[in-house]
């Protein structure tokens, strides 16, 4: 028995614009129930990649496959199965949220009789209830962004593509967006482009890092997070002192009282904490080091040499 085709597959996908290769040889797969974070510095090719995935921009090489079918041989697939929020929400500002979402639902093939329910659900999920009758042109940037997210999910697509959805959000709205994306990720396949690394850590199952149009890293977001710790100690230590602990493979001082410590894969954090206490290092703080993703990202952004895909 063959396994079902992934919801989204990029096969050696590339795109040239004005004679320049903006993205090259992208290979990615995404299944329903997964959230993929797409990271990259400005000009890395994120938006071009998302536009190819959304069916707006045809690849000049390779293919974009939706459930195993080529999106550009069957462009009608996009109508019902893809929801896309571009970097700037595509809002018709003279309409109110409900009118606009009704049009979006019908445009994406929702049957006339199901439109009211679909719009009500999108409005509820994006918390637009109070604003549903306001002209979109009068809404704040955060609410406009929410309407943009609502138009991407109103037809319950299999694949949701969000380009910088948290842009313009205040911290509370950003937190709610993370919850929304996590919720969407349970039922749909979601591709999320963002500059905000904590958003990727909080929302995404997997991360892909683009640099200069190439995929430089792809892997699980949380795969290595438990092996890298940020440790506060009261005693002045040397790197050799850490090597006395059997589970430590590397230690790097951050300042006088803090170290970044890498544990061997599979090491238990409570055993490590017990060992630190037993050795009398004077443990003052212990937490997961949030930096592996950041350090990977920064290392890729700073280097121009192609790296192996994980």
């Amino acid at each position: 028995m063959t396994s079902p085709a992934p919801t989204l597959a990029l096969v050696q996908a590339g795109r040239r614009l004005a004679g320049r290769a903006v993205v090259r040889d992208l290979d990615l797969e995404l299944a329903r129930g997964e959230v993929l974070g797409l990271l990259g510095v400005n000009g890395a090719g994120k938006t071009t990649t998302l536009r190819m995935i959304a069916g707006v921009l045809a690849p000049t090489s390779g293919s974009v496959r939706l459930g195993g079918e080529d999106l550009y041989e069957h462009p009608e697939l996009a109508r019902r199965r893809i929801g896309y929020l571009p970097e700037t929400p595509p809002l018709h500002v003279e309409l109110d949220a409900e009118e606009y979402l009704r049009f979006c639902a019908r445009l994406h093939g929702v049957a006339r009789g199901a439109v009211t329910t679909a719009v009500a659900r999108a409005i509820e999920r994006c918390e637009l209830g109070e604003m549903r009758r306001r002209p979109l042109g009068t809404l704040s940037k955060g609410y406009r962004q929410r309407v943009g997210v609502a138009q991407a999910i109103v037809h319950e697509p299999e694949l949701i593509v969000l380009d910088e959805p948290a842009s313009g959000f205040d911290p509370v709205q950003a937190l709610r967006l993370r919850e929304l994306v996590r919720g969407l990720g349970r039922e749909h396949a979601v591709v999320l482009s963002t500059h905000v690394l904590p958003d990727v850590s909080a929302c995404c199952d997997r991360v892909a890092i683009l640099h200069r149009g190439e995929l430089r890293h792809a892997g699980e977001v949380h795969a290595s997070a438990t092996t890298s710790l940020r440790v506060g100690v009261a005693r002045a230590l040397r790197a050799d002192d850490w090597r006395a602990l059997p589970m430590v493979v590397a230690a790097e001082p951050l300042d006088l009282g803090h170290w970044r410590v890498e544990l061997a894969p599979g090491s238990a954090i409570d055993a490590f904490a017990a060992a630190v206490v037993a050795h009398g290092f004077g443990l003052t703080a212990l937490g997961a080091d949030a930096l592996p993703l950041e350090s990977t990202f920064l290392a890729i952004a700073a280097s121009d040499a192609p790296a192996a895909v994980a």
Partner: peptide, 14 residues
């Protein structure tokens, strides 16, 4: 100008 064309282009409508 309003960056709303992607709504139509991404809708799968020819």
């Amino acid at each position: 100008r309003a960056a709303t064309l992607p709504l139509l282009l991404a809708s799968g409508v020819g």
